[in-house]
């Protein structure tokens, strides 16, 4: 019996090792919102992602306070009042690549922002080379889906819909 256990354990370990995985840590996510006084945009250049080619699972992760704004006050309000990065430090996406055609892929999964999770489905550029994967996508999120409240009277009033652009290159994990 012991031997069977060990064999099962090893088969799992070996499965882990042989899975073809890709990983990237310097991805870029940009968001853009039209606002009354001035448009608001911010960029996060520390986005990381994993893609498992054997299971076609795809995951993204970023830290909210890595978003850099052109104005420090916007950044403060973003972290303190809107995204509450002290409580919800990370935002993640965990999903599956459903279909790859040419250089485009259909991806579906759970996007978690501000502690709220919602299923999203989108098309994006997906270029799978031998030792790397390049991903680029553009989609919109609605603030109300993630329980992000915008006060009525505020200088940097932001739109209900935010445009998000993602760009990342993943390298094969050897």
């Amino acid at each position: 019996m012991n031997r069977i256990n060990i064999i099962i354990l090893f088969s799992f370990l070996s499965f882990q090792i042989h899975a073809q995985k890709y990983m990237g840590v310097n991805g870029e996510i940009l968001f853009y919102s039209e606002a009354l006084l001035e448009d608001i945009s911010a960029v996060n250049k520390n986005v990381s992602a994993v893609y498992d080619a054997t299971t076609s699972e795809l995951g993204f992760q970023l830290y909210i306070n890595d978003f850099i704004f052109p104005k420090a006050l916007m950044q403060e309000h973003f972290n303190e009042n809107y995204l509450e990065s002290d409580i919800y430090p990370k935002s993640t996406f965990i999903g599956n690549v459903l279909d790859i055609k040419d250089k485009e892929a259909l991806v579906e999964g759970d996007l978690t922002i501000h502690g709220k999770t919602k299923k999203i489905k989108l098309f994006g550029i997906f270029i799978n080379n031998i030792d790397s994967v390049y991903i680029e996508a553009k989609f919109n999120v609605e603030l109300k889906d993630y329980n992000i409240k915008v006060p009525k009277i505020v200088m940097y009033k932001i739109a209900e819909k935010i445009e998000i652009k993602v760009k990342i290159e993943l390298k094969e994990i050897k």
């Binding site: 990983m23 990381s48 299971t55 992760q61 972290n79 430090p89």
Partner: peptide, 20 residues
């Protein structure tokens, strides 16, 4: 399995500074 997918990204947990 799902959580394990992202767990390889967390190997070097970054220092979280307290702001504001």
């Amino acid at each position: 399995a799902q959580e394990n997918l992202l767990s390889i990204l967390d190997e070097d947990e970054k220092t979280v500074y307290i702001y504001y």
